[in-house]
Amino acid sequence: MAKKIRVLIAKPGLDGHDRGAKVIARALRDAGMEVIYTGLRQSPEDIAAAAIEEDVDAIGLSCLSGAHMTLFPRVVQLLKKKGASDIPVAGGGIIPPEDVPKLKRAGLKGVFGPGTSLQDIVAFFETAASGRAK
């Protein structure tokens, strides 16, 4: 059986808007990936723990509340602490352009704002997963 790409799609923080996350999850599913969707209001600790148990190849975070500068880097740090810094993390949502370089410096491998095409996102996860060291 061929290696399947497994992706965790999670919503850290308190906003209750998960349509975007669900659209992404569905696009990745339709691209043949196994998508673990963990629902709303996850703490960064929940997300890092789930990513490890699920042995995912990449994590996609969605946040529309404006707390992305706190929550996204926190997930990256927690993965590092747990010896799982090889799992690439991407984030999306309402992200002001000036935050993008800061998030990249904080260790996010991809940052996707409004208007990003689904093809670009699928391509990102395919590349991120194939580049992950086993």
């Binding site: 569905r26 990745l28 599913r29 691209a31 196994e34 673990i36 929940d46 723990a49 789930a50 699920e54």
Partner: peptide
């Protein structure tokens, strides 16, 4: 592909 959504109801336990 697949959407695996059972964790949605099990988050309290994951840590």
């Amino acid at each position: 592909g697949a959407i695996l959504g059972d964790r949605v109801r099990m988050t309290d336990a994951s840590r």
